[in-house]
């Protein structure tokens, strides 16, 4: 069946972020030509100065909302996007910069900047879904490029992306890894963390850092009991949940339960 209709128009937007997730698109290497062949890359300042005006069929949004200007900009992007997909922990959970939400922002600004009066920022870093409706959230810090290609392929085909929300443990076992917690006594967030990385850290004998945020039914309380038995202090346990996905509710609540 020949597909006569025009190629979907893709835009890539940046909010408060490190750019790592949108770079995953350029990192696709083997698939990059196929992606470029399948969509019209209409707006992607990281890759090209050529910018085509909206509306867009798919907007990939990286980063969190941290300024009044950003809060307005995301509304305009939503209006010109048929599908809005957030990519990465910042856009999906506020990112590492959401650590500000637990402290006083004016104090940070006064310490960090020579001229605090030049800084116009919000008191919080918030995920895109706190501001506009989001069609799909892709997890990870950074995202997996294979999952990014899968999400694009799914949206182009009009199907549901295959990005399972179960634990990292299932990926670990599928790889044939030996469990670092059970066999080595290494603390690991894998049992409460969303799959997608392919169990990267445990494959190199490290515990999972929770980069993909909470899995579908995280029992952080039970895991914390085990982390304590492995020798972690309450402070350590609070901090381990408070990284790239600190604002994701299950991780936020668990970290607050260990506030000392």
């Amino acid at each position: 069946m020949a597909r006569a209709h025009r190629k979907p128009r893709l835009a890539v937007w940046k909010f408060a972020s490190c750019d790592g997730c949108q770079l995953s698109l350029l990192d696709c290497e083997d698939e990059l030509l196929a992606v470029a062949g399948a969509v019209e890359i209409a707006y992607f300042p990281e890759a090209s100065r050529a910018m085509v005006r909206g509306p867009y069929d798919i907007s990939l949004v990286e980063g969190s909302v941290t300024t009044p200007h950003d809060a307005e900009r995301i509304q305009a992007i939503r209006r010109q996007s048929r599908h809005l997909v957030t990519i990465g922990a910042c856009a999906t959970a506020g990112g590492i910069q959401a650590l500000r939400n637990f402290r006083d922002i004016t104090e940070f600004v006064s310490v960090v900047y020579a001229r605090p009066d030049y800084i116009e920022t919000l008191a919080t870093s918030t995920p895109i879904a706190h501001h506009v409706s989001v069609d799909f959230e892709l997890r990870g810090c950074p995202i997996s490029k294979a999952q990014l290609v899968e999400v694009l392929s799914a949206f182009i085909a009009g199907r549901k992306p295959v990005t399972p929300a179960h634990s990292v443990c299932i990926e670990c076992k599928a790889r044939g890894n030996v469990c670092v917690t059970v066999a080595h006594g290494t603390p690991c967030l894998g049992p409460v963390t969303h799959a997608g990385c392919g169990a990267l850290c445990p494959s190199y004998h490290r515990g999972c850092y929770g980069c993909f945020g909470p899995m579908e039914s995280p029992n952080t309380r039970s895991l914390s009991t085990r982390l304590a038995a492995l020798g972690m202090t309450a402070g350590d346990i609070g901090r381990v949940y408070r990284t790239f996905n600190a604002l994701a509710d299950p991780f936020r609540e668990e970290s607050e339960a260990h506030d000392t």
Partner: peptide, 9 residues
Amino acid sequence: AARCLTCAN
């Protein structure tokens, strides 16, 4: 259920 991680190990 209070202890189970539903991790599937």
